[in-house]
């Protein structure tokens, strides 16, 4: 008995081997190596300062020692707080709003019969579209061209056209001289819109699994629509809501390509490069010349995501009805 069991085990490992090798090489080792590199630094004689690990220096035989220097220099970097602040702000703004909107849209979609498939497709489109491409379209929608020295810029972006049609004054959303909050506003709209499809999909799936009889029972019990939504729908959907909130936070902290989509890799409007940089963008800045610092920043980001997820799980344990 034990012998056959052992044999089966051996075979099972054999079948798993290709996947395990790929995982080891492309996932496990990079993680371990990131942690290792994050703690490596050396004294540079020419710069007369401590510098982080970089593989070009490693290749020409420079010696590295263990230390926390990478972490301290990341935290002391001028850009670090901006990046962390932008990341936090965008996450905290977009996750609750996109979750609420997704919930409302999912409930609405679930309660209509005709045209449901069409609406579902429309809401799902952003999910299958390249986010850089969407970013460029957003940039065009919010953008202005025709900036000439000494003259008012001429806006052709459709958003400003609409605002002007309704009698408002146009806003410089993303171009040179635009304000930080205008930029954040654009990012907010873009990220919420981009995050909706996945959330709608998950919540709609959850809604379709809810027994219709609960709604009949609630009707007999005299619950208003609003109460039914809060007392029946939301609790019954709470596992799905918890899921989209947690993945939403994780996704929010990894925000990067949306900024690139709109502002390009300057990470900010012309003249204020880097003003909208995020943690991932911060990591990418160091990735080709100072892998030590990049790794340290990545670990800091990981620690933040880990902590926030733990808080999420702790809260959901109390509020979610499985």
């Amino acid at each position: 008995m034990t012998k056959t069991k052992h044999k089966n085990n051996w075979k099972a490992w054999l079948y798993l081997l290709p996947a395990l090798i790929i995982l080891a090489v492309f996932t496990v080792w990079p993680i371990i190596n990131t942690i290792r590199i994050a703690f490596l630094c050396r004294w540079d004689n020419e710069l007369e300062t401590v510098v982080g690990y970089d593989y070009q220096a490693a290749m020409i035989g420079k010696e590295f020692v263990l230390g926390f220097n990478n972490f301290t220099s990341v935290v002391q970097n001028d850009q670090f707080l901006t990046c962390l602040g932008n990341t936090m702000l965008l996450t905290v703004l977009t996750v609750p709003v996109s979750t609420m909107l997704a919930l409302l849209i999912a409930v609405a979609l679930n309660s209509i019969k005709p045209l449901r498939k069409i609406f579902q497709t429309i809401f799902f489109l952003p999910y299958v579209t390249n986010s850089i491409a969407i970013g460029m379209v957003f940039a065009a929608m919010f953008g202005m061209i025709g900036i000439m020295p000494g003259r008012e810029p001429i806006s052709i972006g459709i958003i400003n056209t609409i605002i002007e049609a309704f009698g408002g004054t146009r806003i410089n959303w993303i171009d040179q001289g635009s304000s930080y909050w205008a930029n954040i506003m654009v990012m907010f709209i873009y990220i919420v819109w981009n995050a909706l499809p996945f959330k709608i999909l998950v919540l709609l799936g959850g809604l379709q699994g809810v027994n219709k009889q609960y709604y009949d029972a609630a009707k007999v019990d005299g619950a208003s629509r609003w109460r039914t939504f809060w007392r029946i729908t939301v609790p019954l959907l709470s596992p799905m809501i918890a899921y989209v909130v947690i993945t939403g936070f994780i996704g929010g902290f990894k925000e990067y390509s949306s900024i690139v989509g709109i502002f390009g890799d300057d990470m900010g409007p012309v003249g204020k490069e880097g003003a909208l940089n995020t943690m991932v963008g911060f990591i990418y800045e160091f990735i080709d010349h100072n892998q030590g610092k990049a790794s340290a920043a990545a670990l800091i980001l990981f620690a933040i995501i880990f902590a926030v997820t733990m808080i999420n799980l702790y809260v959901s344990k109390k509020k979610v009805h499985y």
Binding site: Y214, R231, H321
Partner: peptide, 15 residues
Amino acid sequence: GIGLVFQNYALYPHM
């Protein structure tokens, strides 16, 4: 003013 008991009770599972 009716009370209805469903075949599979339809008790709200989270309450």
